[in-house]
């Protein structure tokens, strides 16, 4: 193999490593603080939910689109966020961080569920929402809760500790 071919293959190897896919497959990818993406996801999803609740009769699709966009962003958080998945090897700091952040996330989802159920039941009891509207709102709310579950643990973990400087992480 010529030197030029060898350099080209080495460059291809580096390119593949740069994508992060090999590290992800090996479960050794670098975990990063994601401080703002979960905020964006939650703002979009919350805005969409407020829109859906305040405009149940018309243009519900605007709220639904916002919730779905927030939900989609939130779903990326566990992949690139600071928390290690249960299938990944984690040391004691990472296990504690995951436990605390998931507890905050699940508490938030439980509170949202409590408020959502009572809001839906109350609005139906007062005949402000019809059964068809309630069904539509509950579907949106289900996506909102999944967005919460995806984004809140990452939000908590990312803001709870300050990121280490790059040179610190490379040491």
């Amino acid at each position: 193999m010529s030197d030029r071919q060898h350099r080209f293959l080495a460059w291809l190897d580096r390119s593949v490593m740069w994508t992060g896919v090999p590290a992800m497959a090996a479960g050794t990818q670098r975990k990063r603080h994601l401080r703002w993406p979960p905020v964006v996801a939650l703002v979009l999803a919350s805005g969409g939910l407020i829109w859906c609740v305040t405009n149940p009769a018309h243009d519900v699709w605007i709220g639904s689109v916002l919730i779905i966009v927030g939900f989609s962003i939130a779903n990326l958080m566990p992949i690139w966020g600071p928390l290690r998945r249960f299938s990944e090897r984690a040391d004691e700091f990472e296990r504690q961080q995951r436990r605390d952040s998931l507890l905050v996330g699940l508490t938030t989802v439980a509170l949202a569920g409590f408020v959502g159920i009572w809001l839906a039941v109350s609005l139906m009891a007062m005949q402000i929402w019809s059964a068809a509207v309630a069904q539509q709102e509950l579907i949106s709310f289900a996506f909102y809760m999944m967005a919460l579950f995806g984004a809140v643990p990452t939000l908590h973990a990312s803001w709870h500790t300050r990121p280490l400087a790059d040179e610190d992480e490379r040491c």
């Binding site: 040391d91 004691e92 700091f93 500790t161 300050r162 280490l164 992480e169 040491c171």
Partner: peptide
């Protein structure tokens, strides 16, 4: 280095960083 110490005690190098900074109680 942090990485060497992390390998010796079987944790992630970032955990050594958080320990040194006092962000984590071992």
């Amino acid at each position: 280095s942090r990485r060497q110490l992390a390998q010796a005690v079987d944790v992630n190098p970032q955990t050594i960083g958080y320990l040194e900074r006092g962000d984590y109680k071992p």
